[in-house]
Amino acid sequence: MSQAATPAAEFQPALTVFMLVKSRREWLALDSNARGRMLREHVEPVLAQHRDSVRLRAYDVEFYATRVTDVWMWEAADHQAYEAVVEALRDTPFWDHLFDIVEILPGSSNAYGKQ
């Protein structure tokens, strides 16, 4: 996923979620133009709708890992904002059609230091 799809809104995230995903053959079979079109049609509208409360950063890890190909780092203003994005993505071809969601790891930045 491109950084262009990442919302630019500034906020202090209450929640960070690392989503470990593995691309499926259906995604890998698409050429770069088709992948870009899929992102524009299905993912960018979801991100745009939630740009004030959720940010996405995508990392390619297939060079160093075999279990997952990408890590999607979500930063959300609150749990409800993150949940709304996930619900919207579940209605797209990306969730369990083009990518397998292998693991979801939620966390808070420096939670111990905030106590």
Rank of each mutant, 00 (worst) to 15 (best):
F11D: 07
R90L: 03
G113R: 08
S2R: 14
A29R: 09
A9N: 10
A81K: 14
T69H: 12
M19F: 01
R67N: 12
K22H: 10
Q49D: 11
H42A: 03
V86S: 05
D91S: 07
A58V: 11
M1C: 01
A84Q: 11
N110A: 15
A4P: 02
D31S: 06
R40S: 12
L56N: 05
T6H: 06
E10M: 08
T16N: 12
G36E: 11
W72A: 12
L98F: 15
A77R: 15
D78K: 13
D31E: 08
L47W: 09
V68W: 14
S32E: 10
W74P: 03
P13L: 03
S108P: 00
Q12E: 15
A88W: 04
M19H: 05
W74I: 07
G107T: 05
Y59S: 10
T69V: 04
Q115N: 06
I104D: 03
N110Y: 10
T16H: 12
R55A: 11
Y112I: 09
A111G: 00
Y64T: 10
A65Y: 01
Q80V: 06
P93W: 10
H50F: 13
M73W: 08
I104G: 01
M73H: 15
V54K: 09
L15C: 05
D52T: 09
L28Y: 02
S108D: 00
R67A: 15
L30S: 05
E75A: 14
R55L: 05
F11W: 08
P13H: 04
D78T: 10
M19V: 15
Q49I: 00
V86W: 02
V85P: 06
W74Q: 05
V86Y: 01
G113M: 09
V86F: 02
L47N: 13
F99E: 01
I104Y: 02
S23N: 14
D91H: 11
D60W: 08
Q49E: 14
D78P: 11
A29M: 04
H42V: 00
P7T: 00
V21C: 13
D96M: 07
R24A: 03
A9P: 10
S23I: 07
Q115W: 06
E83W: 04
Y64S: 13
F11I: 07
V85G: 08
R24F: 08
L28K: 12
D96Y: 03
Q115E: 03
A9T: 11
A76P: 10
S109P: 01
L105Q: 11
S53F: 00
S53R: 14
E10W: 03
N110M: 12
Q12P: 00
A58S: 15
F94G: 03
A48S: 10
L20T: 00
H42S: 05
M38R: 06
Q80M: 02
E75M: 13
Q115H: 05
P93L: 06
E75G: 07
R35Q: 15
T66H: 04
P93M: 06
V71E: 09
S109Y: 13
E26D: 14
R24D: 03
R57E: 07
L89H: 02
E83K: 12
A9L: 09
A81N: 12
A9D: 11
M38K: 07
E44G: 00
N33I: 01
V46A: 07
S23H: 11
E41A: 13
E103C: 00
T69M: 04
L105H: 05
R51V: 00
L39F: 12
D78R: 11
G36A: 09
